[in-house]
């Protein structure tokens, strides 16, 4: 059933750690979609799974099959490139669709189009700090 008998110990352990890390990140992202209250907050949650969640499991697959075949097998990179390009496109379209639908319904939580004028920019942005945290 499992090919692990043929794997060297370091490859098996590295694969195990990477697989667990990727799956855990994906699960955390999924829990995030349950916990966040609004659509625009929920948009952030699946990117956990599609960025490093996918990346870790793809790396695990690369390590596992490279060690099995005793030559570098990197075709998993294709999936990684594809997911990193396509997921932002989907999320952007969805965010624009959500914005459009909310504006049609006059939702007060959604910024009006006037926010896109140059002069209102300073009012919308928080004031400066030293090292801004990301995320």
């Amino acid at each position: 059933m499992t090919p692990a008998e043929n794997l060297p110990a370091w490859a098996a352990l590295l694969t195990a750690v990477l697989v667990l890390l990727g799956a855990a990140l994906t699960l955390v992202g999924a829990i995030g979609t349950l916990r966040f209250g609004s659509f625009f907050e929920r948009v952030h949650a699946p990117t956990l799974g599609t960025s490093w969640g996918t990346g870790a499991i793809l790396l695990a697959s690369v390590v596992c099959f490279s060690a099995l075949g005793s030559r570098p097998i990197v075709h998993e990179i294709m999936i990684g490139v594809f997911i990193t390009i396509t997921t932002p496109v989907t999320l952007m379209l969805l965010a624009r669709a959500a914005l459009y639908r909310d504006r049609v319904e006059d939702d007060a939580n959604v910024p009006p189009r006037t926010m896109l004028r140059r002069r209102s920019v300073n009012a919308a942005a928080p004031e400066s700090g030293d090292e801004p945290p990301r995320g």
């Binding site: 907050e41 952030h44 030293d130 995320g135």
Partner: peptide, 28 residues
Amino acid sequence: TSTPGTAWVEYAPDTGVLLIHVLDLVEG
């Protein structure tokens, strides 16, 4: 968009202003 915590929402080509949504607007 692929960075968790920030999402591209809207861009106005005429003014060049971009609207993003941020999950955690930390003070400062």
